[in-house]
C-alpha cells in the first residue's frame, strides 16, 4: 500500500471539512492554533475521530540559543496527549529570543555550535513527548558567513546526534536551491533516506528585486511543475513517507486542496509503477 496524501487543516476550512468529510489520507494541524479551547478545539476533536492527525509545531523555536520555553512545551505535550498524533514535527529554525516571539521561521547559521544547541533542544522535546520527532528543512532567503557546513550536512548530523527523523519539504528545497544556487536533486539524494518520515508540498511566489528573482515560500499557489518533478524523485527515495499539501495564503476552497492531494497520490503511483518496471534503480539514477 502506498501512503496517501494529507491536507493541512486551516480555520477557513473547518466548516467545509465537517460538512464534506473529504476522502483523503490524513490532516496535519499547526499545534499553536489549538492551544486554547472552544470551537477550534471542538473541530479538531471531531476531525481526530475520523482521520489520522499529524501535529506540526510552528513556535517551539528549536534553534533558540536560550533553549525551549517550558510553558509552551507543556502546552504542546498536553495537546499531543489529547490527540495522539501519528507524526509530530517542527522546523529547523528559530523564532524566540528573550521571550519575544518573532512569528517567523528564522534561519540558523550551520555551525557546530548551532548543531549542539538544536540537538539539545530536539532531545529535550523528544524526551518530553516520549517519541521521535521530525525536523523540517526550511526555506531560506539568506546565508550566514559563519556557516561551517551545508544544510543537508547539518540535518544528517542532527539525525545522528538526536535520533530525530526528517520532514522533507520539497518546495522548501526548491526555494532554497534557487535562492542560493545549489542542486535540489543532490540535496534530496544527500538526505539519510531511512530518517525521512514525511514530505511537504506547497506553492511559492517569485519576487523580483533589482532584477534579481528571489523565491518566497508563501504557500499561496498550486504546487509548481519543478516542485512536482522534485516530488517524483523524493517518493522514489523515501517511498514510505506520506505527503502533505499546504496552503496558507490565497487559500482556495477545500476541494482544490483535495484535488491537489489526489494529484500527489497519482504521481506517487506512477513513480512506483515506473520503478517496478525498471531493473533495480540506484539512488544515483533516481537523483
Amino acid at each position: 500500500m502506498l501512503p496517501r496524501a494529507g491536507i493541512g487543516l486551516r480555520a477557513v476550512h473547518h466548516e467545509a471539512v465537517a460538512e464534506t468529510r473529504p476522502d483523503i489520507g490524513w490532516f496535519e494541524i499547526h499545534a499553536e492554533n489549538y492551544l486554547g479551547g472552544g470551537s477550534p478545539v471542538q473541530t479538531l476533536d471531531a476531525v481526530r475521530r475520523d482521520y489520522p492527525v499529524a501535529l506540526h509545531g510552528v513556535g517551539l523555536s528549536l534553534g533558540s540559543a536560550q533553549g525551549l520555553d517550558d510553558g509552551h512545551l507543556d502546552r504542546i505535550a498536553a495537546l499531543a496527549e489529547r490527540i495522539e498524533p501519528f507524526l509530530v514535527s517542527e522546523h529547523l529554525s528559530w523564532s524566540v529570543v528573550d521571550g519575544r516571539y518573532l512569528n517567523d521561521l528564522l534561519p540558523l547559521p550551520y555551525t557546530r555550535e548551532a548543531l549542539d544547541i538544536v540537538a539539545a533542544n530536539v532531545g529535550r522535546l523528544q524526551d518530553r513527548l516520549k517519541r521521535r520527532i521530525l525536523v523540517e528543512n526550511p526555506s531560506t532567503y539568506l546565508r550566514f558567513r559563519a556557516s561551517e557546513m551545508k544544510e543537508w550536512e547539518f540535518l544528517r548530523a542532527l539525525v545522528r546526534r538526536s535520533g530525530c527523523g526528517l520532514l522533507c519539504d520539497v518546495n522548501n528545497i526548491h526555494v532554497s536551491a534557487r535562492n542560493h544556487g545549489f542542486d535540489a536533486s543532490a540535496y534530496l539524494a544527500a538526505l539519510p533516506a531511512d530518517a525521512v518520515g514525511e514530505l511537504h508540498l506547497a506553492g511559492h511566489a517569485v519576487n523580483e528585486a533589482d532584477g534579481i528573482g528571489i523565491l518566497i515560500d508563501d504557500h499561496g499557489s498550486p504546487v509548481g511543475d519543478a516542485v512536482w518533478r522534485l516530488f517524483d524523485q523524493a517518493v522514489a527515495l523515501f517511498p514510505s513517507a506520506p505527503a502533505l499539501v499546504e496552503w496558507d495564503s490565497n487559500i482556495p476552497p477545500l476541494a482544490r486542496l483535495v484535488a491537489e492531494a489526489r494529484q500527489a497520490d497519482r504521481r506517487r503511483a506512477e513513480t512506483a509503477s515506473a520503478l517496478r518496471s525498471e531493473p533495480a534503480p540506484t539512488r544515483a539514477r533516481v537523483a
Partner: peptide, 19 residues
Amino acid sequence: VKAGKNDCQTATSSCAGTA
C-alpha cells in the same frame, strides 16, 4: 468571529518581498 480566526502559519507572507 469565526470568519476572523487567526491561523499561526509556517509560510512567509507573499507580500513580504525585499522592498
